[in-house]
Design a protein around this nucleic acid. Sequence first.
DNA 1: CTGAAAGCGCTAACAC
DNA 2: GTGTTAGCGCTTTCAG
Lengths: 371, 371
Amino acid sequence: MATTIMEVARHAGVSASTVSYVLSGKRPISQPTRERVLASIAELDYHPHAGARALAGNRTQVIGLVMPVGSSGLHRPLLAEFMMAISVTARGYGHNVLLLTDQEGQRSVVDATRGGQVDGLVMMDVTLHDPRVETVRRLGIPTVLIGLPAEPGGLECVDLDFAAAGRLCVDHLADLGHREVVFVGQPEEVYRRQTGFAERTLTGVLDQARERGVRVTHRPCEGGWSATAGLLARVLAERPSVTALVVHNESAASHLAGVLRNCGRAVPEDVSVVAIGADAAAESGEPPLTSIAVPAQRLGTHAVQALMAHLEGPRRPAAPPGARPAPGPSPGAGAGPDGPGGPLLLRPELTVRASTGPARSAPPPRAPRHG
Amino acid sequence: MATTIMEVARHAGVSASTVSYVLSGKRPISQPTRERVLASIAELDYHPHAGARALAGNRTQVIGLVMPVGSSGLHRPLLAEFMMAISVTARGYGHNVLLLTDQEGQRSVVDATRGGQVDGLVMMDVTLHDPRVETVRRLGIPTVLIGLPAEPGGLECVDLDFAAAGRLCVDHLADLGHREVVFVGQPEEVYRRQTGFAERTLTGVLDQARERGVRVTHRPCEGGWSATAGLLARVLAERPSVTALVVHNESAASHLAGVLRNCGRAVPEDVSVVAIGADAAAESGEPPLTSIAVPAQRLGTHAVQALMAHLEGPRRPAAPPGARPAPGPSPGAGAGPDGPGGPLLLRPELTVRASTGPARSAPPPRAPRHG
DNA sequence: CTGAAAGCGCTAACAC
DNA sequence: GTGTTAGCGCTTTCAG
């Protein structure tokens, strides 16, 4: 049934080890031999047995993707985006991805690791005090974290530079003349749980606001239409001179424009809006929102590249059709003084869409638009 | 470093095979022996080596999840939903999930299968003429398809009963007195590609419309705000007496209410809306839409259960905390006359939200609401 | 540059 | 009810 390396060897008139070395490239093989072997492999449609390989070679060519399962700050579209990017990049390096959901504590992670099922791990949605970090540290398996824990414990981290994102939003609005801004944030609980990215964003916003002489009012938001509407009504009554919003909350962002219209404020004529979050949420609304995307794809790709670098010296990807050969972590990285060893923080990029414009001196509540 | 079965055996004063049999339960072990062995396993923190196991036992306890990668009709939130459900259910059966993206053709699927890396496959987002189906059929690996291909070739299929979903929408509207309905469908291309689910929905809608004396106008829709707005403006001008919409298009659904408001029609006072698609899209709008959800979770769970049934006689799940013991494919199944062997079509469930109400005899275009 | 052979850690007959 | 043993298919010394 299953073709073995011995059959290939016989068919090519060589020994099994030669076939193995042709495949691994771990020792020089003469051109003619190599060709005969490859021909036999093709003809017999040989596929090496992964288990045998793992047993003998102590490497599986599989990376584990540790997913959040319970209360994740990560929203669904992003999750899918991450997985795609990670899977595609991993395959570029000849690796497959094993899904590790930690429903039952961290059993699946520990089992897979100790059972020699994976060569390394990528852990998604890492929070500030994430118990999983200590687990993998103890397991001693090469791991890259997506997110920034308080104690990386020597593990590599990859994330969006949320502080810079916050600053960038304020800059954009300040450049347009806005001086009074509301920051619609994550649900209260997220700040209490110290998720990290939420605080970093807030800090960035506040810092740059001070810098630019912008007044910022921070309001956590539960998301959904009614919560968002209520929040906005209150805060706009409180601060009538607000001319712009920064929103770091996907499920609020999609409603903002509608809510504002209902309050009789046009976007961007009366109020400008900048979002931080999944592109899908920003693009799909009316008007589409100027936003800073969480670059799930780039983050996933970088995470895998970083992991591969750890897996065995600078091995290069198997030239995946369409994937660049990863000439180092240059793209969009704001590595800062940490250099290699510090977290890899991707520089945020602001996409200007239709929701931001110059500030009005007075914010005139008008009748809703009819077109 | 890694504890082996032999070390456990020595520590417990038994042979390796006994340890193996304690773990697999494939032969009776006396109570005292079993206990000693389990104690040793715990004390030494033994984790069987997956590769060795796969090699000797010819089973990996891993299922492959074949994901769409390119032009998928499936939208992101659903994808994530599927994966979670599948992964969680699989772990309930003691299996892990290997992600198989078919970017480079079907190489990853073939490699993983022939390489003995997976015991079975779940294939997502299967279309009517899906080339992957023939591939897995030829590979001869146990596979469950999510979606209905034209030629299942003996493979098991699981899907939502989209025809029934279409009928259910029409019934709901007809019951409310609506007689003139627009069906906002998938993008034109989807119908041309014969994706299957799109046609089945359309058929269901048209059939039941005939049955109930409802007039239906079908319009494919590209999605997004402007396309949706344009489409609606045209069709409402054409058919002024329309009082309800059925929308089978996530990226149009989220805009419908807003667009209608902009046309001066209130939902549901002037126009009722029923959606078929991801719950998230329906729930998040204002007003939230009455809808039939694609039950990603249930579909994923059923797919895995069906696969497990194929993997080796009726093996039972390892009593996962909180997962029901799968007493057969009863829940919500409209198995029909096919019984076991035919596709498992889940019965659609309509969730009434705020977007549907009784039909008005005349559809009076009014001024937009100010609240 | 190539072969022979010793395991990797486990499962599943086959013995008793 | 338990122990012995022969591989599973591959990688990698060690020889040549």
